[in-house]
Design a protein around this nucleic acid. Structure first.
Lengths: 216, 216
DNA sequence: CGGATCATTGAAGTCCCTCAAGTCCTGTGG
DNA sequence: CCACAGGACTTGAGGGACTTCAATGATCCG
């Protein structure tokens, strides 16, 4: 990958990285920090499409379709590995193994979004929040970001609300239910999950293992 | 592609094609007919993830991850082009251009699902139904399946309801609103859209053009 | 100290869901 | 040929999960 790497980029929390509809000349891999993918509607409503963890590839749609379907923003300070979009094609020709990995990543993303769709469409608020926290926790655990059953979760309640299609108020109340049931304590940017099995059961999550991901 | 093509398959309406969690040895491209991608929840709820049109590739997730994230079912009689999953990798090595197309398709799918997520999460029932019908109509138009402002739409109301996370009853009532406003008449498997611009405006759809798609 | 952001809580309202009938159509079998 | 069952669509009524409105407290910062 070094051949295609242009450099590294460090951005502050809150920095926009890619804009929906844009055709960025640069693609990224998140090295440190966390971010947010989201779409904005004409009336100002926001749908959070996904959370970005270290290792995530950013800009696949721009690379292959020439246009992003969502915006990307840093939630914490992030450092990004920068690639040149113009090298994208030669990448496919010269490194079929890496091209395969890229497609794999795209498939994982599609898989996740089908799951998210099911959550928003079919799960209740309690199930949905439990689902979101479970997924985040499992993902973080696979990355070694969990110690003593706790992890850094640097988002605000509005982010989760926008991810689940719920109002901020109801998200808050739902979180407090999970807290009172001793299933998930998320305060001050730290999430503690004492009983993942029960949380996942509420979420109707059938697979507690993290999906294997290729790294770009 | 002929090299990888194993044969053709004709299935009746209602036939399951791929199952969630399965690792099918075969991948498909839809040649004729229409289908449905969906996920089932433990409590029996169903989320329709996408509608399948002629030209759609089926089984990418199985091809690359070894496991489908959703089930696929034929809604009408379908004829499928069958590929061998075991050839998938050599495909990437020998035909980087086609591999690129495949990734492109995956990106399009991801793009669509982000849009769908936004619909279910943020749009009202009326906007959501308008969005769904607009998308279907635009997609069909791009495939030449629209004549005189009408197209075949061989789904039932429950399918759309499950796609939008709405109840059947409310979907029905919302459809009748669009009908009374002369914006979309969908009866007997035929959809007529006399005023796409207005329908799309209700849906807060900003792009009336169909996305260019590579064919596998 | 004023302003901004975020979390929290109570109260009122509404969009949508569930329940319940009833119609229409098709296919099936006596 | 008619009775019956099943599936899809339709419509009304009531209830509930969630939204919106509103106010408060906590924390941080220039």
């Amino acid at each position: 990958m070094q051949r295609f790497k242009v450099g590294e980029l460090v951005v502050d929390a809150g920095t926009p990285i890619l804009m929906e509809g844009s055709n960025s000349p640069q693609l990224f891999t998140a090295l440190h920090g966390m971010g947010l993918r989201y779409k904005l509607l004409a009336d100002g409503k926001r749908q959070v499409v996904n959370m970005i963890f270290p290792g995530d590839f950013i800009g696949l749609q721009a690379g292959v379709m020439g246009e992003m379907g969502h915006s990307v923003e840093a939630t914490t300070k992030m450092t990004l590995c920068v690639f040149d979009r113009s090298e994208f094609w030669s990448f496919f020709k010269e490194r079929p193994d890496r091209a395969f990995s890229l497609t794999w990543l795209a498939a994982i993303e599609e898989h996740f979004m089908g799951d998210a769709l099911t959550t928003i469409g079919q799960r209740t608020a309690l199930q949905a929040v439990a689902w979101a926290l479970s997924r985040l926790f499992i993902r973080a655990d696979a990355l070694g970001m969990v110690t003593n059953g706790t992890m850094k979760l640097p988002y605000i309640q509005q982010d989760i609300a926008d991810a689940l299609g719920l109002s901020l108020v109801h998200t808050n109340k739902t979180l407090s239910v999970l807290r009172s049931r001793q299933l998930a304590h998320w305060t001050d940017g730290t999430l503690r999950v004492p009983d993942l099995a029960t949380l996942a059961e509420i979420a109707m999550l059938d697979d507690l293992s993290a999906r294997k991901r290729p790294i770009m």
